[in-house]
Design a protein around this nucleic acid. Structure first.
Length: 282
DNA sequence: GTCCAGGCGGAAG
DNA sequence: CTTCCGCATGGA
């Protein structure tokens, strides 16, 4: 039995539920007072209670999850900047999603996950990724329960297109398989860490199965390029209905928001996406 | 049955 | 350069 560490953090700018459910991450499950969250080969249990958020994990993973939940960043600055923009829908969205933080996710997992996400809905995306982990990941244990790690590229490269179709990937099967093979052959996506957002985008889009939208998500959630502004169907609705925008081309809508909100664009995007999607579900 | 989901690749204009 | 079309799957 390994030792458990508990991280305690003020909840004013940290809602575990909203942070997990704002669409940036796909591997988490309700558990007791909150959620179990899985990242790469690690797991933690987190929840809000009183005026705090708590994260329980193995002692050796304490730094990993401190960084994962982006706890060294001051979100009051981001939140206040959003309010100061003086844009109604952004003010409403920021207030509704005040506790949202952008996670520092595992890069490889983020890239594969957002390829799965294209033209797909969040419950299905979760299911497909879970099947990949169960089939190809490594069995681990946390708080007395088994779970599976996100598979390595090596493991993924061993399986054919048929396997990926069998877990529901449809036409995306070949995208996943080919990326795994490329990484196995030496493609190093970590090398792109220090590129500008624009140069990074070029590299990402060159991957088979990665277009502008997925590239923006991976830039924002994996590489933490906060000027990236992913435009999906929900954000397109926000743009049309709330910003009264007239541009049709999604790439240009993304450019519009990146230029408008600069290094806060990605954070605002999460507020907007979360609010728009939560309203539609009612 | 139709429509849609955190879209993309490839062909055609 | 931009626009259009086919694509797998499952839930509403």
């Amino acid at each position: 039995m390994s030792e458990i560490a508990i991280i305690k953090f003020e909840s004013q700018y940290f809602s575990v539920k909203d942070t997990l459910e704002c669409g940036q991450v796909f591997r988490f499950l309700p558990y007791k007072k909150g959620f179990k969250v899985y990242s790469a080969d690690k797991c933690c249990y987190c929840y809000n209670e009183g005026d705090f958020a708590f994260i329980e994990c193995e002692k050796q993973d304490e730094q990993y999850f401190y960084n994962y939940f982006d706890l060294s960043r001051d979100y009051s600055k981001i939140y206040n900047s959003a309010i100061e923009e003086n844009v109604d829908i952004l003010t409403i969205s920021a207030k509704a999603g005040k506790g949202i933080r952008i996670l520092n996710q595992d890069l490889t997992e983020t890239l594969f996950s957002f390829i799965v996400s294209q033209n797909n809905n969040i419950p299905r995306i979760k299911g497909i990724i879970e099947k990949m982990c169960v089939a190809l990941g490594e069995r681990k244990e946390f708080l007395g329960e088994d779970y599976f790690s996100f598979p390595t590229a090596k493991k993924m490269a061993e399986r054919g297109e048929e396997f990926y179709k069998s877990i529901g990937l449809g036409y995306r099967a070949e995208y996943i398989r080919r990326l795994a093979v490329e990484i196995e052959k030496g493609l190093d996506i970590f090398e792109w860490k220090n590129l500008s957002t624009k140069e990074l985008n070029k590299k990402l889009v060159s991957i088979y199965g990665v277009g502008k939208k997925v590239a923006d998500c991976v830039s924002l959630f994996g590489y933490r390029k906060s000027d990236a502004f992913p435009v999906d169907t929900w954000i397109e609705k926000v743009y049309r209905e709330d910003f009264k925008g007239t541009i049709i081309n999604r790439e240009k809508i993304a450019e519009y928001f990146s230029n408008k909100f600069l290094d806060n664009a990605g954070y605002y995007q999460q507020y907007l996406f979360f609010y728009k999607r939560s309203k539609e579900k009612e």
